[in-house]
Simulated scan of single mutants.
Amino acid sequence: MARSPHIDGTAQRAAQILSRAKPGQRIDTLLRETFAHQRRLAPAEKTAIAGALFATARWHRWLDPKAALPVRVAAAMHLQARFEADPTSVKPEALAALALPDWVRDEVDLSPADLIALQTPPPLWIRTRAAYTKRIKRFLTAVTPAPAPANRTGLLYSGDKDLFRTEPFHQGHLEIQDLGSQLVGHACVPQPGETWWDTCAGEGGKTLHLAELLEGKGLIWATDRHTGRLQKLKQRASRAKVFNYRSTTWDGGAKLPTKTLFDGILIDAPCSGIGTWRRNPHARWTTTLTDVQELAVVQRQLLEHALPALKPGGRLIYAVCTLAKSETTAIADAFTAAHPELQPLALLNRGPQVTLSLSEWNANGMFLAGWTRPTAS
């Protein structure tokens, strides 16, 4: 177990915040609630406190559970700083054994590089509207273009501006969107004039990206089971000046929200989120194998229920931000076997099933699979 002999003010404040957390509460939610009432904290103080809380979640299994909370937080901060300075300071076998819950070993294959990425703070990716990319690069300066195919509008930001307070964000010229999510849009390859369905649109990140790729021509149906998320989508679309979409609720059942047949259907399904555990390390210790198994049932149902809305020649894309075999290859293999009438579809020039690893893309881990319904001969 790791300990730190020095407990500074950041560790004390972070421990106080953590002591008020509700069972299972996300760290980002806890921080939002806290900072809303502590407006005098400087941006640097907020960043340090957030870093301490996330480090405590990452190094959870290295910490002495009997130690006082400030001691555990300080120990985690020490481990995090040492690891970022020298990843070899923690043995690979220790990372493999302790960075994740035990049940994950049978579900997820992570390389040593993935495990190192998992224990480091996540990058900040943004997506620009293509017409404003050059202007945003000049404005932010501390940006690096994403690798292809996201290199035109995807940027890695390493500066210290609060992007949510910048003019380009308020004008709808940029979105905060992880590169893994951006690659989902590029894998869909929507063509101007097509009609697409984003079945599990949530707050609309991928809907807005599809609209950008459609160049404002064509139509997107955005559905979700939660009206609150769709209301957030409406606000984001208004800010981004995206109007070629319709939104309505859909519970994922066999009754479809429209009789429209689609050129493309994106099923960005609810999942265990293992691919986001670099960004949400607290979720490692609340997600269970039972969650994975229950979500796999939902994912298969979504594919089956959405399929009738696919046009001949249309493209069906399945995406999840998880790396669990039960939610990725097992789902894709079973769906392929059940539907020999569909043809597997190559995605991102890699094949019909693509795993985006944390280390290769410096982004959330994702899994993609694709099929097309052949046109009548």
Results as ranks from 00 to 15, higher is better:
Lys259Ala: 10
Leu302Ile: 06
Arg284Cys: 01
Asn280Pro: 02
Gln293Thr: 08
Thr287Met: 12
Glu294Ile: 07
Lys232Ala: 14
Leu295Lys: 07
Thr286Lys: 09
Arg246Gly: 09
Trp250Pro: 01
Gly314Asp: 01
Val292Ala: 11
Ile265Lys: 00
Gly252Asp: 05
Leu303Gly: 06
Pro270Glu: 00
Pro257Leu: 00
Leu295Asp: 04
Pro281Ala: 02
Leu289Glu: 04
Ile317His: 10
Ala296Leu: 07
Gly273Val: 03
Val292His: 07
Ile317Arg: 08
Gly275Lys: 02
Leu261Arg: 10
Pro270Tyr: 03
Gly253Thr: 06
Gln299Tyr: 08
Pro257Gln: 02
Lys232Arg: 15
Leu307Gln: 04
Ile267Ser: 01
Arg279Pro: 04
Lys325Asp: 12
Glu294Lys: 11
Arg300Gly: 13
Lys311Gln: 13
Tyr245Arg: 06
Gln293Ser: 09
Ser238Val: 12
Thr286Val: 09
Thr258Val: 14
Ser326Gln: 15
Pro270Thr: 00
Ala269Asp: 04
Gly314Thr: 01
Leu303Glu: 08
Pro312Gly: 06
Trp250Gln: 00
Arg246Pro: 07
Leu261Ile: 08
Leu256Met: 12
Gly314Leu: 01
Gln301Thr: 10
Gly314Phe: 01
Ala240Gln: 13
Gln301Val: 09
Ala306Gln: 04
Leu307Asp: 02
Thr287His: 08
Glu304Gln: 14
Gln299Asp: 05
Pro281Lys: 03
Gln299Cys: 06
Thr276Tyr: 11
Asn280Arg: 13
Ala296Val: 07
Gln301Tyr: 08
Val298Glu: 15
Leu233Asn: 05
Arg239Phe: 10
Lys232Ser: 13
Lys232His: 13
Pro308Met: 02
Thr249Tyr: 02
Leu316Val: 11
Gly313Asp: 10
Thr276Ala: 13
Val298Pro: 10
Ile274Val: 15
Thr248Val: 14
Gln301Ala: 15
Ile274His: 15
Tyr318Ser: 08
Arg236Met: 11
Leu256Thr: 12
Gly264Phe: 02
Glu304Trp: 09
Gln293His: 13
Asn244Thr: 08
Gly252Ala: 05
Val320Leu: 06
Arg278His: 04
Thr288Lys: 05
Thr328Trp: 08
Val297Arg: 15
Pro281Met: 03
Val298Gly: 10
Asp263Phe: 03
Cys271Val: 00
Gln231Ile: 10
Ala306Leu: 06
Gly252Trp: 05
Arg300Cys: 09
Glu304Pro: 06
Lys325Phe: 10
Ser247Ala: 15
Val242Arg: 10
